[in-house]
Amino acid sequence: MTTSLLIVQILNGLQFGILLFLVAAGLTLVFGVMDFINLAHGVQYMLGAYLAVTFVGLTGNFLLGLALALAAALLIGLALEFLVFRHLYERDHLDQVLATFGLILLLNQGVKIIWGAAPLSVPVPEFLTGSVRLMDGILYPVYRFALIGSGLAVGGLLWFIVEKTRTGMLLRAGASNASMVSALGVDIRKLFMVVFAFGTMLAGFAGAMAAPILSVEPGMGDTVLILAFVVIVVGGIGSIRGAFVGALIVGLVDTLGRSFMNDLLRLFMSAPSARATGAALSSMLIYLVMAIVLFVRPEGLLPAKGRS
């Protein structure tokens, strides 16, 4: 276990955490304001990636393709809101879970029909290729830095909107008491649409940004969705700050666990049994972290204010 490897893996963990944050932020926002649990959030991330594949391929320009993919993701999201989600806000969580589960089945299979089951990829844009030299012998790809940077920028923007603007004030008010906000004359349906559009864009953006470094395949959203759940539970449901902290914890623990668990176990185990135990343990690690956090603080690390 060398220092350079450690630094690279910490950066990888950060980058993974930022990606998870983008997905989890939308999920927790929608849940916090609308009390709506949207399992289809993961497939919206997947759609973002697939749309990026198509539009970057069509235009040959990464930024233009990204913008078109985001617009298309938003349109699909709003269509889903209009057709399905809108009718579920008043229902109990069981109905929401089931209906959005149905959408997952539809969209995962639909993607297979349209784009095929084989993994696709997006080429890394030319102006972001190459690597940065951090120290002697440590190179790190520019694109991954760009991903960390843009993720942080979006996170900062989100913080600004939620904390400093009128819309954000309504969001926070809606999260504490939606019916009161409605009684004060705010069009709550419009507010819900805005929140939902935010969430969809965040998930689509995460998917599109992940497309050049991950393989784009059906079901890629499911893994991310479940990790986003872990993030939200660790951070505190409905809390964006919590989602940020939770995402970094999950991203780092998962990445570092996968790369160093073997070496750690090798200290007191034979190589083959360390490999077997390490594989099992490192894939379970984040769930163990979640269990510990819940055991100590059932409401999460940074629970949203004003929710009971």
Partner: peptide, 12 residues
């Protein structure tokens, strides 16, 4: 699943 997913949604 393309048929079954929407059936679940409609059922709910």
């Amino acid at each position: 699943r393309v048929i079954f997913g929407p059936l679940i949604v409609l059922f709910v």
